[in-house]
């Protein structure tokens, strides 16, 4: 019992004193996962919308593959990205392994199918004739896509949340491709794993609380955006 009380106490102290190391870890987590989510939005939403609007043979197969990708185990992605970035691997020349860039890459690989999968479902869930109705109103193709996205804004923001939630809480890939280097690639999840392993439960609890608060804050903001301007 003492362990928990002490842990929470230490956590509060770390939080309210703005401990520089904790602070830098938090910031890096936010940056890395934020950039990775952003990248996955561009690729995942772009691909998802094109796929949802396109009609071709093998579409169902491709959508199934993407949906399977939504449950991609981070350690498998970590392994794959490590091999790709390994010194004599296909992308070794980038010298990205054990840098924040590597974590961003791995997290983007994890988040993209999540965003794409939800985007496809969101766009396909709109009424079939809505696309025709928008074109009939005199929309260009870009205007049509914009209006479809606006109509699907609730599930599309859910895609953002799911993507961000997936990568900020992920540890396997980050530790494999980032290496948990102090002050360089140490993020909230990898630090928590390490501190727990060392028996420093107080710091681990503090990091855990920060992670939870961070995820909550980001999702709260997105929810506000999502529910904004809904007429009553």
């Amino acid at each position: 019992m003492d362990l928990i009380v002490q842990g929470v106490w230490k956590a509060v102290v770390l939080l309210v004193t703005f401990d520089p190391e904790t602070w830098s870890i938090t910031l890096l987590s936010l940056q890395v996962s934020g950039v990775a989510t952003l990248a996955s939005l561009f690729i995942g939403m772009g691909a998802g919308i094109s796929l949802a609007l396109a009609d071709f043979r093998g579409k169902k197969l491709l959508v199934s593959i993407i949906n399977t990708g939504m449950g991609l185990p981070p350690v498998v992605v970590g392994l794959f990205v490590t091999i790709m970035l390994w010194r004599n691997g296909p992308m070794g020349f980038l010298k990205l392994l054990y840098t924040p860039g590597a974590i961003i890459l791995a997290q983007a690989v994890i988040a993209t199918p999540i965003v794409a999968g939800i985007t496809i479902a969101a766009i396909q869930n709109l009424p079939r004739n809505l696309r025709l109705q928008i074109l009939a109103l005199g929309a260009t193709r870009l205007q049509m896509i914009w209006l479809l996205m606006r109509e699907a804004r609730l599930p599309l923001l859910a895609a953002v949340m799911a993507g961000f939630g997936g990568v900020i809480s992920e540890v396997g890939a980050s530790i494999m491709v980032g290496g948990n280097i102090k002050g360089y690639t140490r993020v909230l999840t990898t630090a928590t794993v390490m501190e727990t392993g060392r028996g420093n439960f107080d710091i681990a609890i503090a990091l855990g609380i920060i992670l939870l608060l961070l995820t909550f804050a980001v999702n709260y903001i997105l929810t506000l955006v999502q529910q904004h301007d809904r007429p009553r």
Binding site: P127, N129, L130, L132, Q133, L147, R150, E151, D229, R230, P231
Partner: peptide, 9 residues
Amino acid sequence: FQEPLLFDT
């Protein structure tokens, strides 16, 4: 169209 297909606004 047969369905009004109004936007969510």
